[in-house]
Structure formats: structure tokens, C-alpha cells
Amino acid sequence: MTKETLAREIRMETEAAGHGAIAIRGVGKSYRTGKTEFQALGNIRLDIAANEFVTIVGPSGCGKSTLLRIVAGLEEASVGEVTVDGVAVVGPGADRGMVFQGYTLFPWLTVRQNIEYGPKLKGVPILERRAVSNRYLRITRLESFANRFPKQLSGGMKQRVAIARALANGPKVLLMDEPFGALDAQTKLEMQEALLDVWAKEKTTVLFITHDIDEAIFLSQRILVMAAGPGRMIGEYQVALPAERTPEVREHPDFLKLKRELASLLKHKEA
């Protein structure tokens, strides 16, 4: 084996293994209004491993959404760089799927057509597309709604479709911007379980934004806490809970302990 082919092999292997590793390197964002400059994000550094489920919690206006949108490529960082598997982010792309807080399903497409939107753009032939949408309709338990229009769905169902639509595109990274923020409490819990269920099957990297501490602990492997003025990381916690998260996890002493810690950290910061 020549040196060159070996190098290529190694590169291919690391690419295959590095499925959705995010590196945020000194990212900052400032807005200028007239003569005053407002710094929304200061020097953020963060590494997220492939297949990791990381949540960022923080109060409204701490810049967590801005950070997520920079990773998505929907906003440009003023300084610093974001890479996914070593490739710098220069704009939005299919490798970084996103689920928004507001409902962003295409209202003129049925549930199935929404899920097939990404594959269709890529030119995936119709039969394969069908197979993909069938798979994600099944995973998100939406089979019986395949031919409905979004306006005929409840809020929770719409977000399930949005998740299915993002995943059907085979992204390396799933970015979620308070996706369950507009849902009622009961639906929210169901959606959290559904998301973990999907994540267990898909194993993509997830970067999840929320201001709900319970949600953060229940879902993630790692939690980062952000504070405002300028947006920065003020704490990092590994969630030492069993990988299999059942609703009973919420009663677990470690869960409650972490919840207290996070709550006091956030409260402290606000005061």
C-alpha cells in the first residue's frame, strides 16, 4: 500500500467515524445599531462529539438561539469559526438539519411530501424517497397522517413531522431551537420521549436549545449553561443518568440534584 492510498484510507475512516462532530472556535457575534455596538455572543468555545446529545440552557436573550443559528449557517459569526467534521460552516446546508420553535412545515405539502422535501431536492428517485418517508413516518408514528396537510395537525404532530423531515435528509447534526417550547406540558413530555426514541435509532449528533431545565436533564448527555451580557458559557454538567431514559428518571435523586444545581446557577446569574 503506497503512502498516498494509506493517507486516503485513514482520511476516509476518520470521516466515516467523525459523523457530526461540531467544533465551535472562539465564536462571537455583535450587532451595530447606529453608534452603539451590542455584543450578543462573546468568545464561545465548545466541542461536541459525534453522536452526542448536548443541550444548552439559558434565559431568554442569552444568545443561545444565535449560537445555534450560527452553527446552522443562518447567521454569520462576527469572529471565530464553526466546523462540522473539520469542514468550516459558511452557510446553511443539508448536513445540519434544523427544527425550529415556530412551525415551519411547508403548508402546501402533505406530511409525506414535507418529509420527502430534502431527498427530492437531492434528486433521490421516487421509490427510494417513498422508502425514506415510510421509514420516518413509522419512526415518528405518523403513518396514518401521511396524506394530511399541516393545518390539519396538532402542534405536537407538526413538530414530529418537522423532526422526521430533518432526519429524512440524513443530516450529520440535528439542531433544535426550543422545538417543544410552544407545546402544552403533556405533549411536551411525550415529544421528549419520542425524540430520545428517534435519537436511539438514528444516532446523529443533537444540539438542543431550551430554557426548560427538566427538558435539558431528561434529554441530554451533557448540559451547558449560558448567561447573557454578552452570551457566554457559565457552566457545564455531564448528566450521569442511565442511557435508557424512562419517565421514572425524573424522580431519580441525581436528576433532582442536578435540577437544583442548574436552577440555583441560573437564578444566581439573574440576580
Partner: peptide
């Protein structure tokens, strides 16, 4: 938001016009 959603699903600017702006 719909246009941005299409971008995160891999749409180019032209595709976003074709598949989002025009139908919407």
C-alpha cells in the same frame, strides 16, 4: 422561516425560490 427551513434542508437560493417562495 420557511425559506430558512428549506436552506437547512439543502435548498440552493434558486431552489428556495422555486419550491418555497412561489408556492407560498
Amino acid at each position: 422561516d420557511l425559506v430558512q427551513a428549506s436552506f437547512t434542508l439543502g435548498a440552493s437560493r434558486w431552489q428556495a425560490v422555486q419550491t418555497v417562495v412561489i408556492p407560498a
